[in-house]
Design a binder for these strands. Sequence first.
DNA 1: CATGAATGAGTATTCATTCAT
DNA 2: AATGAATGAATACTCATTCAT
Lengths: 225, 225, 225, 225
Amino acid sequence: MDVSPPRHLKARKMPRQARSASTIDTIFEATIQVLLKSGTHRLTTTRVAERAGVSVGTMYQYFPHKQALLYALNERYLDRLAERMEKVCLDHHGKSIPDMIAALVTGYWEAKTERSEVTRALYSSAVELDNEALIDAFARRMDAATGAMLESAPIVNCADIHLVKATLLSVIFGTVRNVFERKLPAHEQVAIREQVIRMCVGYLSSADDDRSKNSGSSLCAAERT
Amino acid sequence: MDVSPPRHLKARKMPRQARSASTIDTIFEATIQVLLKSGTHRLTTTRVAERAGVSVGTMYQYFPHKQALLYALNERYLDRLAERMEKVCLDHHGKSIPDMIAALVTGYWEAKTERSEVTRALYSSAVELDNEALIDAFARRMDAATGAMLESAPIVNCADIHLVKATLLSVIFGTVRNVFERKLPAHEQVAIREQVIRMCVGYLSSADDDRSKNSGSSLCAAERT
Amino acid sequence: MDVSPPRHLKARKMPRQARSASTIDTIFEATIQVLLKSGTHRLTTTRVAERAGVSVGTMYQYFPHKQALLYALNERYLDRLAERMEKVCLDHHGKSIPDMIAALVTGYWEAKTERSEVTRALYSSAVELDNEALIDAFARRMDAATGAMLESAPIVNCADIHLVKATLLSVIFGTVRNVFERKLPAHEQVAIREQVIRMCVGYLSSADDDRSKNSGSSLCAAERT
Amino acid sequence: MDVSPPRHLKARKMPRQARSASTIDTIFEATIQVLLKSGTHRLTTTRVAERAGVSVGTMYQYFPHKQALLYALNERYLDRLAERMEKVCLDHHGKSIPDMIAALVTGYWEAKTERSEVTRALYSSAVELDNEALIDAFARRMDAATGAMLESAPIVNCADIHLVKATLLSVIFGTVRNVFERKLPAHEQVAIREQVIRMCVGYLSSADDDRSKNSGSSLCAAERT
DNA sequence: CATGAATGAGTATTCATTCAT
DNA sequence: AATGAATGAATACTCATTCAT
């Protein structure tokens, strides 16, 4: 994720040697483990270092302070998530709209759910972390990826593709998180997921319809005013 | 909100005298102020007490520990939010579906946005708080309120009203939060809000259509299997 | 126990009315209960008052501070213990020396053991309590009582009866406490108790022998130098 | 003292470097000083650290909590006391019984009296400390040491040497403590001490007599049943 | 007199960060 | 570079005591 983080959250050294890279990875993993075992508010630098098998001193060589560590961890997480979702999008270029939507929703849902505890832990670690820049960067990548995917669909051809995309992404990401966080029973989660797909597909095709019919209440018409 | 909280999060004494009630309210307000000024992780019992103009000791008479204070604060917040949304629902009994949806989305959006900093602060205060019970209770109230509202609409008549409601609420609450948290520019937020309303309205009418047409891919048909 | 306690440890009001006396007794009992349930270092005035069913304020009417309460409690305990032991002594006037010794040892041992947890609790409550005066008064009463008892024995007739008594009492009280505190198995405690009786009886008769034989190494001779 | 303490009272790190060892010793000394100056209930970790000239943090590196510190302090004290008494016993192997007894009593008495304030302070610090294991270990060492000493005496030859030893030790330790705690005038303490020695010597020789005479009421006969 | 809410100094314990070795 | 001992400010929570009602 090529964001310039708030200056004070920068990692201290970029891993130039293989050794460093692996050390950093070990530290990341250790952080997650501690997060899972002890929760955010008992995540201490000492505990992380211990778990990672390095000394605190060493950890401070890589991350100038705790916040920087958590920032970098979230960065890595969002980076991987973005990559994964970009791949999902790429894989569905040229597919039908319903396929695309289903892929987006399901892909995101699976990414969150696979290691749901880790997801939850990361959410809580990011509280009060100045990570807006990360979120924005993630949003931009998603925007680009879904944009490219949707444009590869034969039918969709709406003027305000930007707004449609923004809406879609907000609905998908927001809803999945909501369902995920409420810890609903699995079958209910799946059922809702299907509904959300239906809803989004309907939305997209209506946006399209509107355009062809030039209807007054349509998305595009609305945008023309 | 008539939830029995996890035993360890119970407030210590129920305010029996007017004086106590106002003290508790003062403490709540102080907590919010401190949350806003210092952030969750610098919210200390001392600071809250100071701001509230009472001694720490007094605070501990009412809340056996910090967690209980935050729990009660969130409880109060969700309680008020629920009341507000219930009123919104009641006020739209018998209205058209689009009106209902618009009211739900806009109502929730406004509730979050009016004192957006407070909303954000409360979200962060709830991290690592065992408040699932609160969320559940809130969800149940929303479910009941929206259910009653939707059933008062002439047209809607779907077999799996439960799933439809759950989906609607997840989409609305999830999306609003997502938009809210990303701090998008106001006009974009409004635009997305309108889209979400469109989307939900479309979803509801399609659910209804499905039923009347008995279409194989419909919501209700699906549920019949 | 007619000791004048260190001025700062005096109870605030002498119970003049029946009501007061019973209140005080309730408080004493409550103190013991709290001591048993929570240990000395979690004995708080509030907890005692609660348990006693009175308000803290009321408690402070009777005892100007915590120390005074504990002092009075220990005073009462030692008073009762002294009474009990005095009765034991009186009951054995004119009996044989072995009977006397056995009565002393067994009596004391039983007094401690009957409610051993209470005994232990009181010991711990007295730590860092300025209760030397109480101990002294108790010692004096024991001295008088055992003195009178021993003098009623036909044989004993030693010049330094004071030293003999002091020794006896130290040995008995010290040993019983030692055995008591080490929580040895009951049968071992009993066995040792019997031995101690033997030992003391032997000591007393030898003190007596010495005197009649006027032996150089005797107790009384030693005292003559 | 090779006792495994209750798990929660374990010291945190064993001193591996000379520096640590001296730090720990400094902390012990400081604890004693604070105990003397402020009493047990005003012994705070901060005060100890201050007096020791280290930071609280450092103290907590070595002792996970106050209790562990006090436990370790008592352990060290009893360890040294045991060593000292073992030496006394060793030094009197082969001596006469009266010499042995005198050595035991006087040795213990001196150990307690030399720094009597420290002794008292340690007693009070141990209240409500789960130090039974320490006391037991100490008792076992004393038992072994006195056993070896007594067995080296030509005459003593009693069947139930175990009971005799237990009695002796209880009497000696109990009585010395009793005399010590009552703060009797020094000359009286000395006088009683002499009496106790006489009493114990008499007891031991009677136990022996009994055996040679096979008297029915003797210790050994009793044990044979 | 009785009550119990309010007080706030006091205390154990944690933890991010530094820096001598 | 790596280490991990040392630091000490920060923080949650307690409890003896007072005093307005």
